[in-house]
């Protein structure tokens, strides 16, 4: 997972690259949280283009982020 922060638009793009399941999602949620707290963006864009697999654990993680 990596992030891109656009200063002008205050948009934080969070790019997920790994499979998102129960095993990976707690770590991803924490990293995501930390970046949102660090940048305090106005908008967050979750980019799933490179995600090859996600189950309902990922949905739970997303809901929590939102």
């Amino acid at each position: 997972m990596f992030v891109n922060y656009e200063i002008k638009s205050k948009e934080l793009e969070i790019v997920f690259e790994e499979e998102i399941d129960h095993h990976t999602c707690s770590k991803l949620a924490i990293m995501s949280d930390d970046n949102i707290k660090k940048y305090m963006p106005q908008t967050v864009l979750f980019n799933f283009e490179k995600v090859s697999f996600m189950d309902s654990s990922g949905i739970g993680m997303l809901l929590r982020q939102i």
Binding site: A29, D55, S56, S57, I59, G60, M61, L63, R64
Partner: peptide, 11 residues
């Protein structure tokens, strides 16, 4: 408390 979506069986 574990941030489960409750969608496992539905899926």
């Amino acid at each position: 408390e574990l941030d489960r979506s409750g969608m496992g069986f539905t899926i």
